[in-house]
Structures are given as structure tokens and as C-alpha cells.
């Protein structure tokens, strides 16, 4: 519970922050994962660069048919934002179920995405939403799609010196229904499995579906086989069941004290069905 000595800087501007990070500084956002690791000395960064005070990273705005969310926006702010609740309800629902109130009030969307915990909630939603991440380094800025961002356990497309500056998610049109279904690991608050679903249904037919899965594999993924199984159907009980049955196919599932790989895969199927039905119930 006693971290090693470290240097701490709270830069006034993003540019200053990125300079220090380029020199090896470790970005600190909400600190919900990093600080506990430091207290146990499992992590011992020499220099923490606190992004929390950069006001220009804390925003939610609608631009060009999408929502742009600054990296240091807290889960609580995302969950309670009228804009997000109205235009991207999947993200608001997901944010509202992260950890506990303390975590939601400190933890940030950029921090969570960059950390890429294989059991975190946000990555499921990001996959289902086909979110884009604006990654910024001292001398560069690029935009990467969620599908190309999450690479492996804690491994992302972030290059050394880069931070997640902004998350971009789509604004839902009237045809979509969404839902996030989570089995909570009760000690940590992480997802044993979490299923994020978006479905567009028009005139009784599913136009497209997006299914993001977290907790099951080494990183959150899109269950495209499920999505294909649903497209074109009316979303009836049997169709949903059949489509969901393949959600964990070919996945090397995680296994730990709280759930074996076999049980996790089973939960993924059950909760994919439940998430799909809940989302379908919300389509027009």
C-alpha cells in the first residue's frame, strides 16, 4: 500500500503533457487501475503526468453526426449526460455499470480505453459502436477504429508517447435499439462477460446488428458471426437463439477463480440472447 517514489506533474496544456510523455512519463487519468498497482509496487513509474486537470480533454459534444468525448470525461459524466443518453444510449448504459460509484466518479473513458483491460466494460460498447479513437502524440495525431485498436491483453494500437485524446461514437438513428448485458465479478466489479448490442430494425426486418463482447477473450471483440446470423431476419426468438449460439465459437475463453472458460462461454451465449432481446424490444 506504499508506492515507490515518483515524480508528479500536472501540466497546464496537452502539448506540455505530451512532451513529458514522449520523454517517458506515464500518463495518469482517473488512476483507477494505475494507482492500486503503484500502491502494491506492481507498477513503479518514475514520472506521472496527470491529465486530469486538462480542461480541454473533458467534454462531450455532437459534431458531424457523431458524439465526440474527451479522454478525461468520467464514466459518471458519460452515464448522466443527456446528450449521450439520448443519442448514444448504449454508451451511457455501459458507463453507468462500470465498477462502483467511486470508480465512476474518478475513472475516465480515455483511461479505460487506453488501459484495454480484457474485462473492462467500455471496450464491448466500443466494438459494437464501431467507435473511433483519436490518438495523439507530441508530433502526431491519428484516428484508429476500435476494431484495429484492441490487440491483446492490455495491448492496444497506442504507440509509445501517444495517448487517447478523444473517443468518437455514432449518433443512433430512430431505427436502432441497444443494450448492454453484464455479468459482474462481484469482488472487482469487472465483467465476467459483457455483451453490448446494437440492432437496426426497419419494417420488421433486422437491417444490421453489432455485437461487442468483453470478458471472454484476451481483448474485446465483435461477434461478427452473430451479426451475420441476425441480418435480414425478423428477430424472432428462434432466430435470436440460433444467431447467439455462435458468439463464443473459436474463442479461447478466459478462465479464473470466478468462472471457468466453459461457463464463461455459456454465459456469453445466454447473455447475448438476453441482450439481443432487450435491444430488439427497444427498436421501433
Amino acid at each position: 500500500m506504499i508506492p515507490q517514489t515518483f515524480e508528479y506533474t500536472a501540466p497546464k496544456t496537452l502539448e506540455e503533457a505530451l512532451q513529458i510523455i514522449a520523454g517517458g512519463g506515464k500518463p495518469l487519468s482517473g488512476g483507477m487501475s494505475l494507482i492500486p498497482m503503484m500502491k502494491l509496487r506492481l507498477a513503479a513509474p518514475d514520472h506521472l503526468v496527470d491529465l486530469g486537470r486538462l480542461k480541454d480533454l473533458h467534454y462531450i459534444r455532437e459534431e458531424g453526426g457523431a458524439l465526440h468525448i474527451g479522454a478525461t470525461t468520467t464514466h459518471q459524466d458519460v452515464a448522466s449526460s443527456a446528450l449521450v443518453r439520448g443519442k448514444c444510449p448504449l454508451l451511457a448504459q455501459t458507463a453507468g455499470g462500470v465498477g462502483d460509484p467511486q470508480v465512476r466518479n474518478r475513472g475516465t473513458i480515455g483511461g479505460s480505453v487506453a488501459h484495454a483491460d480484457p474485462s473492462a466494460d467500455y471496450p464491448a460498447a466500443m466494438q459494437a459502436l464501431e467507435a473511433k479513437f483519436v490518438l495523439k502524440g507530441a508530433k502526431s495525431e491519428r484516428t484508429v477504429a476500435a476494431a484495429d485498436f484492441f490487440l491483446d491483453t492490455f495491448l492496444t494500437a497506442l504507440e509509445p508517447g501517444e495517448i487517447v485524446r478523444e473517443v468518437i461514437v455514432p449518433v443512433e438513428d430512430g431505427s436502432t435499439g441497444t443494450h448492454y448485458e453484464k455479468v459482474v465479478q462481484k469482488a472487482s466489479g469487472f465483467a465476467v462477460v459483457g455483451i453490448a448490442v446494437r440492432i437496426s430494425r426497419k419494417a420488421g426486418k433486422i437491417v444490421w446488428a453489432r455485437v461487442g463482447v468483453t470478458g471472454l477473450a484476451n481483448h474485446a471483440y465483435r461477434a461478427t458471426a452473430v451479426e451475420k446470423g441476425l441480418a435480414g431476419t425478423s428477430g424472432g426468438a428462434t432466430e435470436v437463439q440460433n444467431a447467439a449460439a455462435v458468439v463464443a465459437d473459436g474463442i479461447e475463453a478466459n478462465s479464473d477463480l470466478h468462472a471457468s472458460a466453459e461457463y464463461r462461454k455459456h454465459l456469453a451465449v445466454v447473455h447475448t440472447i438476453r441482450a439481443l432481446l432487450a435491444a430488439l424490444a427497444r427498436t421501433a
Binding site: 426468438a237 435470436v240 437463439q241 455459456h266 451465449v269 440472447i273 438476453r274
Partner: peptide, 9 residues
């Protein structure tokens, strides 16, 4: 059958 989950539908 494993897929008893249909019950809920």
C-alpha cells in the same frame, strides 16, 4: 438440450 434458454423467450 443445452439451449433451454429458449424458455425465457
Amino acid at each position: 438440450p443445452v439451449a433451454r434458454m429458449g424458455e425465457r423467450l
